[in-house]
Simulated assay, not measured.
Amino acid sequence: MQQRADEIIKTLKSKGLRVTPQRFAVYANLLERTDHPTVEQILTDLNKDAPTSSQATVYAALQALREVGLVREVLLEEGVSRYDANVAPHHHFRCKCCRTIEDVQWNAFGNIDLSQLRSGLKAERFEVIVQGVCDRCQ
């Protein structure tokens, strides 16, 4: 446990971030999750034992983590921001029944030819979002 904490502190410092208890807690929480939580879910998780964090604090921590590339915002449904500490390139699958979200390997779809975009468009990044029904809901 202490080794994990030391790694988180080292990572935050290497990105030039001041290590605050809130940033540490939010980042540690995201590193342990694969469910792509919302701010509300992170806040609930952090405040299970004793309410010490506010929604504004979680948003501020996420913004700082996002700005230095430790966390990415995932937009899979309208009006809902989710967060992911897996910043390596990957896609997402979202079950329309149970609403679970799973990572999909980057190379799952082969090469996507971005040169087919119309003239004048310059792609900077892309992500495939697959929507369907997971094996648990079938």
Rank of each mutant, 00 (worst) to 15 (best):
Q3D: 15
Q3P: 01
A5W: 04
A5E: 14
A5Q: 14
I8F: 02
K10T: 15
T11D: 07
L12T: 12
L12S: 10
S14N: 08
L17F: 02
L17K: 05
R18W: 03
R18N: 04
T20P: 01
R23F: 02
A25H: 07
A25R: 02
A25F: 02
V26C: 08
L31H: 13
E32V: 00
D35W: 08
H36P: 00
P37D: 05
P37W: 03
V39A: 11
E40S: 15
L43M: 06
T44V: 13
T44M: 09
D45P: 01
D45E: 11
L46Q: 09
N47F: 05
N47R: 06
A50R: 11
A50D: 10
A50C: 01
P51H: 04
T52M: 05
S54H: 01
S54D: 01
S54W: 00
Q55F: 09
Q55P: 02
A56Y: 01
T57K: 05
A60K: 13
A61L: 04
L62I: 06
L62T: 04
Q63M: 09
Q63W: 04
Q63Y: 06
Q63T: 15
A64P: 06
L65C: 04
L65N: 12
V68P: 02
G69T: 03
G69K: 09
L70S: 12
V71F: 03
V71I: 12
R72V: 05
R72C: 05
R72L: 04
E73M: 10
E73W: 00
L75P: 00
E77P: 00
E78W: 03
E78I: 08
G79Q: 03
S81M: 03
S81N: 08
Y83Q: 11
D84C: 13
D84E: 06
A85Q: 09
A85D: 08
N86F: 01
N86C: 10
V87K: 09
A88C: 02
P89Y: 07
H90P: 09
H90R: 10
H90T: 07
H90E: 07
H91D: 11
H92A: 09
H92S: 12
H92I: 07
F93C: 13
C95Q: 13
C95S: 12
C95G: 05
C95Y: 13
C97D: 15
C97G: 09
C97A: 15
R99L: 14
T100M: 15
T100F: 10
I101Y: 06
E102R: 15
D103F: 00
D103Q: 12
D103V: 15
V104K: 07
Q105P: 11
A108M: 08
F109D: 10
F109Q: 03
F109A: 02
N111H: 14
I112Q: 05
I112F: 06
S115F: 06
Q116G: 02
Q116K: 12
L117W: 07
R118K: 11
S119G: 11
G120P: 03
L121N: 06
L121E: 09
E124N: 07
E124A: 01
V130L: 12
V130A: 14
Q131Y: 15
Q131L: 02
Q131K: 15
V133F: 12
V133T: 14
V133P: 02
C134L: 10
D135Y: 07
D135H: 11
Q138N: 15
